[in-house]
Design a protein around this nucleic acid. Structure first.
Lengths: 341, 341
DNA sequence: ACACAGATTGTTACCGATCTCAACAACTCG
DNA sequence: CGAGTTGTTGAGATCGGTAACAATCTGTGT
């Protein structure tokens, strides 16, 4: 009746202890606990009762060792506090949990293949059964290739390589949609504040932007580049504010967009009256800062879910064909964009 | 020279394989790899060479099983995408990594003791050596108590219980500092938009606010309550905007503060001219949205670091005395607060 | 040169589950 | 009613490391 009656001594109870108490063999206990079909309801009940009575918890290490399965997936992400990875991680954790997997995280401070390989390697040591890279892996090094050949790997918005699957928003479309929105409002052209060069999505959004301008027969102004942070947006904004011909700006993230807007305001250029600004991500604050930000939303949580889903599929059947999955982004028009004055 | 010369067959290389190649015993390999002091430099070099050549990676499960140590700590957090937990997690991961620990995460959607116990239990099953609760645990249930008695547990901003340590910002001081700032500007009183009741920090900030008002001999206006989200701040703001006597508002989070500000603006009340608003957290956007937000910053990364530090200390010496650590918050004055009109 | 302390390496048992395979029971069907 | 089939349970080997202890190899002091 006591709440935690350990078996013999202070030692944590063993499968053997459970077996003894239930009057069956270790093996039967194992089967009962792993929902093996061929176990009598009666036997199963006895085992469960013994488990409850002893407060038994399966030893993950032993289970892992003998079965070779860790029921754990690893996540490599940037420690950046950015909205997208946080939401993606959440989606992954949920999906993993419902599929009976635990999640282990490894962060990397650099996007160099070596740093990423190092993070993957840490996860490999923990015997994860699959890895999700929430960082862009532009080029696969030997090291990353080696690990992802051995451990199923899914990249989010990365580039496709032989041994990794990709789940992604079509970022070129994101760039195109954002740009077309501004053009359709009547702006002559659209300036672009891109994300860092190492990020795949940054490059693709840039391509989309360029393609949209080209399709409309407009010249692409010189590009600006930030690091996703509001501060970098602010710096870029200081430049843009000086050029009267700038009436429309497509920033590759909401945070940069707000930085840009602030710089514009400080220099007397009103948004959206004088300049229209659009971002990407639809962070929680996008609708509540002033002006409310027009942006392109991405279904981050679903992306996380999909990534884990794929991973589990490949874990179950290592020969299944790696495929590329694309999910759609949505334009959300708010107050930061308007027709030119 | 090939990049992945597995030993005998396609099987992953074994410690025995390494030992054979290096011409030493398994045990020596083990020692060399765990940085045991008594290993000749020469031997260590041979082992390392063999490891590199075979692409050997230690099997965590086996190691864990025989040593009884998982070198993993678990984190329980809310899936909320809030800035603070993201930064705290980052600090933890870094600290854990440098200490040679991996991090495993478990999220909980509810703050009920049962839900938290369930998350802790998932971590316990993974044999984590310690747990950090980034969720507030107001009351410890039997289940949480049982686990935290067995596994060292640190709570961030939680309430102190027999078996958990606490790392916290003194949230009452946060509330007091924010309130005093507004009073010192000359506001008659300060309204408060608190966080959800289940959160310890919400309650403590409220106390600090109340205490500051009392110390200044002012009446505490009725309290409003949000859920940390910008939307909830907006809703509260709709109420506050209707009351002309409101000139100063202390919101318990930056995101709520921006929601409040938006509602005020929409109803023609200017910030800070008509109403001053202060938040808590100093999120990245605080300085870049308009108006720039006056706020109280908390050293989240350090909190994460400290939590893990404590945990590792207790893991190393289970008898060390649980102590409460407090770190300081900083008032950051920006444009959203000003003397009353 | 000898005994001895300390450093280095090897031997063996074991951690706690799962897998394989064999034994046994119950049930079907001609 | 016996042979064959399916379902249930048990025994023992095994996964890949590490702890404890034994063995061997230094180098030192007398």
């Amino acid at each position: 009746m006591s709440s935690t009656p350990r078996s013999p001594a202070g030692r944590a109870p063993d499968m053997a202890d459970v077996a003894a108490l239930a009057g069956v063999s270790k093996q039967t206990v194992s089967r009962a606990l792993s929902n093996h079909p061929n176990v009598t309801a009666r036997t199963r009940a006895k085992v469960e009762e013994a488990v409850a009575q002893l407060g038994y918890r399966r030893n993950a290490a032993a289970s892992m060792l003998s079965s070779g399965r860790s029921r754990t997936i690893g996540v490599v992400s940037m420690p950046t506090l950015n909205y997208s990875s946080a939401v993606i991680s959440y989606g992954m954790e949920r999906a993993a949990r419902t599929a009976g997997y635990a999640v282990s995280m490894a962060t990397t401070t650099s996007l160099s293949p070596e740093a990423i390989a190092e993070a993957m390697s840490r996860l490999a040591e923990q015997a994860v059964e699959g890895i999700v890279l929430v960082v862009p892996l532009l080029v696969g090094s030997d090291a990353t290739e080696e690990i992802s050949r051995r451990i199923p790997t899914v990249t989010i918005d990365g580039s496709r390589s032989a041994s990794t699957q990709v789940v992604a928003v079509d970022q070129a479309t994101v760039g195109r949609v954002a740009t077309e929105h501004l053009l359709s409002l009547g702006h002559e052209t659209v300036w672009h504040l891109a994300g860092p060069g190492e990020w795949v999505e940054a490059g693709e959004r840039e391509s989309g932007w360029r393609a949209a301008l080209e399709a409309a027969g407009r010249d692409a102004p010189p590009i600006l580049r930030g690091d996703w942070s509001p501060e970098s947006g602010y710096q870029a904004g200081l430049l843009l504010a000086r050029m009267p011909e700038v009436t429309a700006i497509f920033a590759s993230s909401d945070e940069m967009a707000f930085g840009v807007i602030r710089a514009l305001h400080e220099h007397g250029r009103r948004v959206p009256d004088d300049v229209s600004v659009i971002g990407v991500d639809d962070i929680a604050l996008a609708a509540y800062c002033s002006p409310a930000l027009t942006t392109v939303a991405q279904p981050f949580e679903e992306i996380g879910r999909l990534a884990v889903g794929h991973l589990i599929e490949v874990i179950a059947d290592p020969d299944s064909t790696p495929e590329q999955t694309t999910v759609d982004a949505t334009l959300i028009v708010r107050g930061s964009t308007a027709p030119p004055a």
